[in-house]
Nucleic acid binder design. Sequence first.
DNA 1: CGTGAATCATGGAACGTTCCACGACGCTAC
DNA 2: GTAGCGTCGTGGAACGTTCCATGATTCACG
Lengths: 359, 359
Amino acid sequence: MSPPSSPDGDVAGGRRRRDVTIFDVARSAGVSKSTVSNVIRGVNEVSDETRRRVLAAIDDLNYTPNGIARQFVRRRTTMIGVLVGDLGNAYHAQLARVVERALFRSGYTAVFCNIEGDVELAIAGVDALLEQRVAGFLLLASIERVPQLPASLRRTGVPTVVIGLRQRWTDSVGPQDREGGRLATQHLVDLGHRRIGYVHTSMAEASGDRARHAGYRAVLLAAGLETPPVMWWEPGSETIRVGRTAVNLIDAMRGPQAPTAVFVWNDFAAIGLIEACEAAGVAIPRDLSVVGFDDIAIAGLNRISLTTIAQPLDFQAERAVDFLLERMDGRGPEPPRHLSVPVEIRVRGSSAPPGGAHR
Amino acid sequence: MSPPSSPDGDVAGGRRRRDVTIFDVARSAGVSKSTVSNVIRGVNEVSDETRRRVLAAIDDLNYTPNGIARQFVRRRTTMIGVLVGDLGNAYHAQLARVVERALFRSGYTAVFCNIEGDVELAIAGVDALLEQRVAGFLLLASIERVPQLPASLRRTGVPTVVIGLRQRWTDSVGPQDREGGRLATQHLVDLGHRRIGYVHTSMAEASGDRARHAGYRAVLLAAGLETPPVMWWEPGSETIRVGRTAVNLIDAMRGPQAPTAVFVWNDFAAIGLIEACEAAGVAIPRDLSVVGFDDIAIAGLNRISLTTIAQPLDFQAERAVDFLLERMDGRGPEPPRHLSVPVEIRVRGSSAPPGGAHR
DNA sequence: CGTGAATCATGGAACGTTCCACGACGCTAC
DNA sequence: GTAGCGTCGTGGAACGTTCCATGATTCACG
């Protein structure tokens, strides 16, 4: 009858074997493609008998709907572009993880783009995501190395939600940075410290930095304490750069007005700082108490034991996804919402009374 | 002339504003859609003058090609499904990061699916990726919690490459596990240890576990040393579970035949083990030397200082992507290739002569 | 001047869905 | 008996590309 077993398009050799389509299912079930479509989408009442036959045919042919075709015709994908600072950084990796879960649970697919603080990469990544017609963007904090990113995203007109950094132009979700700065600093004051420094990265727009600093200053002011000049920390891009010099902090430690405690704007930097201090002969917490922010996983290790401010990442991810889905539906409120979720302090071994009373 | 500023499809309200299409560009440039397509794809010689006009029109209209439509008609996407064990685990996160970069560099998009050792999640994730018609799969190690995954992927017929775990049915890339086990154990023997234990997870198919164990046994055999029973470690799923008991190791440490050193099958477990030991009063390295595998970022911290086997993740990711692209082109060789990349030992503070000669 | 080749541009079919308008059928109510 | 309605199913247009076969023009060469 038919030509003897047509070539059929090899799985290999470039051109792919033709998929089972909705037509094949329709033919096999003896109905029209529209009916199959209705069954799959669960709309437009279909009689039980017909549905049964269609489902049987789907099962029979091992049919998987072609999501690309669906997204094409609907002119709306289920992909969300997730821009993340650096997956090598535990805080970002953790955030990426919970975001992926939250999106998946809502039926969306996370497409990550690892910015790595590289402007070229960021631009190329966003372009690629736009070409893929992502339905939305999720911007995960720490975009300090690519300051033009927010404006650029905004211009695309694609719904965007920011996590970890407050932005005026769109919804954002983040920790109570100011409160966190307050808690951390108050903890140090309560321990009896009188000269408490603040350490951040050298970048200006670092997520939450400003607010954390404000909380810190407020406590010092209320306690009638002097505010030493801000110290900075040059973050390593890939890992916590062991022994990387926190130049002016170490210098300060040797000066006449050495702080007895510091609040560091995030754990990643705090741990690097501890490493650098110890390498320079500054004992933690005897010579210097350190408090971080984020409570990344390793902060809880006994070997690290970093006092820090914990923020609930899961909850933030879920709310951010909620916000994003609303905006994608055009249901997002104006002006944009900004949710700050509560933080709490985890007191561990890196902080102690001045002079190192315990440990 | 025209109706007063037609509704035009609001950006919000569900139905999206119609994109600029290739037709708009064609009209604006005064050519056919085919010519625009030729210019974009850089094929089928186009005169310089025409190309210039088309590019100008593209720029003018701010046209972004619709990747979904392209992938639809070509019946081939540029998305690669990346199945990863647990982004919360530093080793996986690091691997995910380099894989994303390598794929991006080749013009592909990584679509991660975080398995989390959850069978349901894994199945649902793979289904979603199949619906998205990913062009290939990359399986990142540690699928020990979802043993049926390889077989399931294989059945899909979608080209797959495995990283970190040797599989017979398809290409794989991984570290020289056996050699790593050898190096680690030889290091301990050289330090003078006579009773050296091996610690792994309780899961059978853990990536590389078997080969690492084999390297370990080979060294002990060659050195004429006794092989203590294998000890196991129940890994925490989300973080290194601080203080989680490595039950039978701690027990063993108290017994008459306590090992003076252990080789732990990966850093994640090794660090957890160190924590548990120290919590139980076993000092590292005085009472017990510990060697890990992977050289995850925090292993290099002075506070951790874990002696371990380093493997080059970037290189593995690049080769794995090469392999995958070849298979996707139908150029993959038969039988499948298995690449083992060299490892090296990084000696740090967690290993010392028995009795803790230094530190 | 006619032919063939080279260069460049074009129109149309196809890709696998969704969604809409419509139609067939059976039932109820007047 | 027929109008109206509810239930269930259908065919076709549309989505924005790619790719192929073909067409138009120009030029070199005999």
